[in-house]
Write a protein that binds this DNA or RNA. Sequence first.
DNA 1: TCAATCACTGTGTTCGCACACAAAGATACT
DNA 2: AGTATCTTTGTGTGCGAACACAGTGATTGA
Lengths: 354, 354
Amino acid sequence: MNNIQGKIKIKDIAEKAGVSAGTVDRVLHNRGNVSEETKKRVKSIIAEINYTPNLYASALASKKTFVFRAVIPAYSSGEYWEMIEQGIRKGAQELIDFKVSIHVHYYDQYNQESFCRTLEEAISYKPDGMLLAPSVKPLTLQYTGQLEKKGIPYVFIDSRVEEAHPLAYFGQDSLRSGYLGAKLLLSQKKECCDVAVFSFFHPGQVAANQISLRMEGFNSYIREKEIDCRQHRATLAVNDEKKNELEMKRLFFENPKIEAAIIFSSRSYIVAEFLKNNNLNHIAMIGYDLLEKNVHYLKNNTISYLLAQRPEEQAYKGIKALSDHLIFKKQVSSVHYAPIDILTQENIDFCLGF
Amino acid sequence: MNNIQGKIKIKDIAEKAGVSAGTVDRVLHNRGNVSEETKKRVKSIIAEINYTPNLYASALASKKTFVFRAVIPAYSSGEYWEMIEQGIRKGAQELIDFKVSIHVHYYDQYNQESFCRTLEEAISYKPDGMLLAPSVKPLTLQYTGQLEKKGIPYVFIDSRVEEAHPLAYFGQDSLRSGYLGAKLLLSQKKECCDVAVFSFFHPGQVAANQISLRMEGFNSYIREKEIDCRQHRATLAVNDEKKNELEMKRLFFENPKIEAAIIFSSRSYIVAEFLKNNNLNHIAMIGYDLLEKNVHYLKNNTISYLLAQRPEEQAYKGIKALSDHLIFKKQVSSVHYAPIDILTQENIDFCLGF
DNA sequence: TCAATCACTGTGTTCGCACACAAAGATACT
DNA sequence: AGTATCTTTGTGTGCGAACACAGTGATTGA
């Protein structure tokens, strides 16, 4: 017999094949030095009884150690990227007994050179795997090319770069989240309506972002459903409160008929704050991402819906994809869209923490 | 030095305390036979260096085995409870190397006696922990009382019974999901409207269910927001298609002004099918739970929103709660509401599988 | 013919921990 | 004092797998 669980061990396989455990081990890990004949025999037995190794025993015995490196934008507390890092940390925690350690590198997302320097440094350590929040395409491709040459698997988080060959991508389908935003905002409108549409901008922005894709999705809904509405666009600046204030005043006061607003950025709270302060309660508003400040305005009914994307889960799964690939030798599928969560006052309390 | 990860092992503690590994083990597991003095010394060192055991090595060495038993309603393929079982199976899969095995018992949810028999049988095996989909209160309390007397921890899944003392509860906040249904259906209505409200019924129903709570939540929204609407209620039968057909015909044809419908049951597809077949496309409809048939009608635009509750995740977490408590000695919090997912055509594809 | 080399296979130690058992002191009892 | 008993402590083995190392024949070369 085998153990209590009835689970098959290497010894059982060895017995059935009439060889020793060492030989089975050699077959399992393609270590060579096994005759073709016994190799086939052992392999067929493994397949037949559907052997799955005890990963914990395996990790315990293994001398291999793994180092992953993550490269993400630097952030302040409460920002979107903080949640990404939380997911990374959670993954790291779960993997320590598998001898995995994870280092996080930060780059200035408004500085191209910083991106390059950070990435170069991370790569110079020759990690076993990388998690990467990509920057603009040509820049990113330059480094993913290096990684591919060195045979280091990497995972994209948050956004994706075409023509690269990541092990996997974890992020939102931004087109569709923009489309859904339009539906939630406009589906029940019967007559022509005025809508404020906000995007964000920072000079020198180098990290990829989803604003333009979301807007594209938004517009495709309007086209498809032939919605009759007037869009009033504005672009806010990341770090210029006064300018933003003026811009919003201009927009809302000059167009008093605006009855809906959508902000294609996690900084939705900036507009929400303005609406709240100016008692523009009649304006329905949709924002993005589960930041604390956004949640605040969702709870006090300024933001009607928040479309969220579970960044911790994305990052966590990204780490898991690396370990699944490198340690557990599992097949990992390459594209993983995060669910688009629709959050309201009613269900928000159940979505904090994942 | 300790190992590569820098993680502290029992041996390290033993060295620091000037005792052997065996003694440290005795302290860690309260096995007794340790003098007060050394016990204190060892404990203080453990606390000081914040020791966390390698759970995998621990499980490997341990001779203990655990048997969990789950008691849930019997179901046919495609029903709600199938997803619960999937979650249980997933949990079982992850725990096999921790020497945990899980048995599932099924009861006829329309037969009180069956519930009793099934539960008695499950308890008679003296499991280490139980996962339970409760029935009506007095009946359930009878058995949870037995479990408590025997010191067997149990977890409620799906719905909850007051006055019992489960290790944890995993399920939806039904009141709030009814409230949210009302909001999605009615928030944009300006004039008085006619709404069809469906509940379900089966003679002899004994498993607890959330229909009435959802309805209560629905009504509280209407009261709070002073919505002006006419409700047309109907109760459908679980297994009588013809009667249901007649009932729906009566309702919708006699009240042609109905422009919205909500079904407080996972069998929402029954109403959706009727609307589809009778070309009542103008009626906005809200259903509950992520059944395949419901998804079908969501995708073809008959159901506008589906409010889902991740039953697999609930069950999975229920199993994890048991193992966290029994095996990993973690503290588990007692109430866990599942997120209320708002599903639409746009985000449904990302929510299948968890 | 004997040693060297090769392909192949078996054995033994190790990982961190649990647990059975042995050993060592301390105490009490005849 | 000698022995039985109890308390306290240390030692050894095994969990399942990884990997270094030690065989074992067969083949080759001198």
